[in-house]
């Protein structure tokens, strides 16, 4: 790991001033950045420790939403009463990710900025347009079982690894960004970019901006929600496919629906197409399957990950079925 200057920011203005230094990076829980620094994927000159900033509270918003400070630890957010009651899919998504130790360290803001687990991204001897623009993509034609089937481009097929963000995408969360220029708010579904031909640019955040909070709007349908994660071992592994779903049905007809996918796309994937199919449709296995197929219609497999298309369809169907029969969606 490169030696670097270290600065612990006592307050937000200090942090925002300090980030102007060349090669400066904010450091939260360190669970991703320190790992990447040790692998020399990230080599900042200055590290600004933001863990002492007063952004570690979960606050009630008028109307029943929540404002989650960017430095709230993953484990604390998952254990929060209001989250468990109003947004169970979010608690489940967080708890499905990483391990107890990592969730105690990792912050909400940091989770949004997690980088891909693509093997070619983390191997400096491999071609990777995300790590080194123009160096090619060795995942195409290589090990791409974990790669994306949705949202990929010729330059990058890497999946976004977060579980939490999948739930946030389904919940219409809003990301609050602050810089010396002011505060702005970006919907989570627009926060992560598709790779296109600039896979190195992963989010909408500007170089001088700090994530200060994530807002969860009041969303009654989310009280009946679920996060289902499918992976290669029973715990402590990244998703092959995950589904965040909230649904409400009345008299057998779907009246409200939120659906997002993880593990299959280059960003947390809000399943708009499926939602459109489902809204107003009968709450049946056939509708679920048809909507799942519609969502995956545009999927493009690589050499090893074609199974994700079928798996995602089945996972969507199974999760909605479970919501209907056990989850109080009806």
């Amino acid at each position: 790991m490169k030696d670097f200057a270290y600065l612990s920011a006592p307050d937000v203005p200090t942090a925002l001033q300090a980030i102007a230094r060349p090669g400066a990076r904010f450091l939260g829980g360190g669970t991703n950045l320190v790992d990447l620094m040790r692998q020399n994927i990230e080599r900042p000159d200055t590290v600004i420790d933001i863990t002492r900033l007063p952004l570690d509270r979960v606050e009630e918003l008028p109307g029943g939403g929540l404002r989650v400070g960017a430095l709230v630890r993953n484990s604390h957010l998952a254990a929060h009463r209001a989250v468990r009651e109003r947004y169970p899919m979010l608690a489940q998504a967080i708890l499905a990710g990483a391990s107890g130790q990592l969730r105690n360290m990792a912050t909400v803001g940091g989770n949004l900025l997690q980088r891909t687990r693509c093997a070619y991204f983390t191997d400096l001897s491999a071609g990777c347009n995300k790590r080194q623009p123009g160096s090619g993509c060795d995942a195409v034609g290589g090990f791409n079982r974990n790669a994306a089937v949705l949202g990929a481009s010729a330059s990058c097929v890497a999946t976004h690894p977060s579980d939490m963000c999948v739930a946030l995408a389904a919940l219409d969360a809003v990301v609050e960004l602050e810089s010396v220029r002011g505060v702005r708010r970006v919907p989570l579904t627009g926060f992560h970019r598709l790779p296109g031909d600039t896979p190195q640019v992963e989010t909408e955040i500007a170089a001088d901006e700090l994530i200060t909070a994530v807002e969860l709007p009041a969303l009654p349908v989310a009280a009946a929600s679920r996060y289902r994660k499918i992976r290669d071992r029973a715990s402590y592994a990244f998703a092959l496919v995950s589904v965040a779903a909230a649904m409400h049905a009345r008299d057998g007809v779907i009246t409200d629906i939120r659906l997002a996918l993880g593990g299959v796309a280059t960003r947390p994937w809000r399943a708009h197409q499926a939602e459109r199919e489902l809204l107003g449709a009968p709450a049946t296995e056939e509708s679920f399957r048809r909507a799942a197929e519609a969502e995956l219609a545009a999927a493009v497999p690589q050499s090893q990950n074609g199974f994700k298309i079928e798996l995602a369809q089945r996972a969507i169907t199974a999760t909605l079925r479970q919501l209907l029969t056990e989850g109080g969606a009806a």
């Binding site: 270290y6 612990s8 450091l27 829980g29 360190g30 669970t31 320190v34 790992d35 590290v47 420790d49 863990t51 107890g100 130790q101 990592l102 105690n104 360290m105």
Partner: peptide
């Protein structure tokens, strides 16, 4: 409980 390998001592 935390992982001391991903924790910088200064933090």
């Amino acid at each position: 409980r935390v992982l001391s390998c991903l924790a910088l001592a200064v933090q």
